[in-house]
């Protein structure tokens, strides 16, 4: 972490949309720094302006005010050809044409470097091979992209960005339509790439849990339409995270680091006792039904869980009857 340096920075940046009549500010007072060798996560609810920010600092959209620098150079003075060697994108649109092979798709990333007919030299090929190797997509080199799963396709798109050989990579919601194992895999991959290759990787996401576990730094969109930055844990502890995602019906669980919905009905307090893992899932079920879980043994209902993970037993208030499943327990309680 010590040898990471700032590669992209903004000062008093304001972003939004402007045409003749309207002047809509989406986010303002942005003082951001993107560092090499780090995975930075731009975190915010849907519609909070994450994509607008990525487009603006990616040089696609003009800012409303303030300045942006790539290293020490003003972003506006960098032309699109130079920018293509500094910054690569992975976008949300699932647009890859199906009848390109994985290799052909990744090799498109060499566009800024290859000859005018798009022929690749040894350096290009070495970079492509490295990109596919680093993302674990070498096995898809001869597979048509249309035959890949969403997760595999996303990894190929990341490989394409790596092939572009830029010190900065932006990813717009890279895990948006992926299932949990794929999301975890992509986040891990990006974190590892940032650390091993020294690239500055910025991704936008609304998935708090993923960002908290994997990001080196958060850019958190706040309700005041600006962004605060910091190490994820700091932002949890000082309450920024709770504020930025706040909804009236949600409460932030500081122990878990995620929001939960408060059930409308408030039932009795329950005390659960037993092995940690079984307590956790029992609690999960009871909370859904509106029971308050307390740590006081004097609670009106006491539940005892015992046994192993694959043969648990529940007992209510030390009665004789035991329940083998949570379903039975919920019926009786």
């Amino acid at each position: 972490m010590s040898d990471s340096k700032t590669i992209l920075s903004t000062q008093n940046l304001a972003i939004g949309y402007k045409n003749k009549r309207t002047h809509k500010v989406v986010l303002s007072n942005l003082d951001l720094t993107l560092k090499t060798g780090e995975l930075t996560c731009l975190l915010g609810p849907n519609g909070s302006g994450k994509s607008t920010l990525l487009r603006t600092i990616g040089g696609v959209q003009k800012p409303l005010g303030g300045e942006m620098r790539l290293g020490s150079v003003l972003l506006e003075s960098v032309n699109s050809k130079e920018l293509a060697r500094m910054l690569s994108l992975v976008l949300t649109d699932r647009s890859a044409p199906g009848n390109l092979t994985g290799y052909a798709l990744v090799s498109l990333g060499r566009f800024p470097y290859s000859s005018w007919m798009g022929n690749l030299d040894e350096k290009d090929e070495a970079q492509i091979h490295w990109a596919m190797d680093a993302t674990g997509t070498t096995e898809f080199a001869n597979t048509h992209v249309g035959e890949l799963s969403d997760g595999e396709k996303q990894k190929v798109m990341i490989a394409r960005a790596l092939a572009q050989d830029t010190p900065i990579i932006f990813l717009d919601e890279p895990t948006a339509h992926l299932d949990l194992p794929n999301r975890i895999e992509i986040f891990h991959l990006l974190r590892e790439l940032a650390v091993t290759s020294g690239k500055a990787i910025l991704l936008s996401s609304h998935e708090m849990d993923m960002a908290l576990t994997n990001a080196d730094r958060l850019w958190l969109v706040t309700p005041e339409q600006t962004i605060i930055t910091g190490v994820p844990e700091d932002l949890v502890i000082n309450g920024s995270l709770e504020k930025s995602f706040a909804r009236e019906t949600l409460t932030f669980d500081y122990a878990v680091g995620s929001f939960k919905k408060e059930s409308g009905v408030n039932r009795k307090g329950v005390y659960i006792q037993g092995p940690d893992i079984l307590v956790k899932w029992t609690r999960n079920a009871l909370e859904r039904y509106g029971y308050g879980i307390t740590t006081k043994e004097t609670a009106s209902i006491k539940i005892n869980v015992s046994g192993e993970l694959n043969s648990p037993e529940w007992r209510i208030d030390n009665q004789q009857i035991t329940y083998k499943t949570i379903e039975q327990l919920l019926k009786e309680i």
Binding site: K81, R85, L108, P112
Partner: peptide
């Protein structure tokens, strides 16, 4: 070829 990925990608690669 680069337009196959769509305008946004093409532009980001300097087209």
């Amino acid at each position: 070829n680069v337009l196959l990925l769509g305008e946004n990608y093409a532009q980001s690669m300097g087209l």
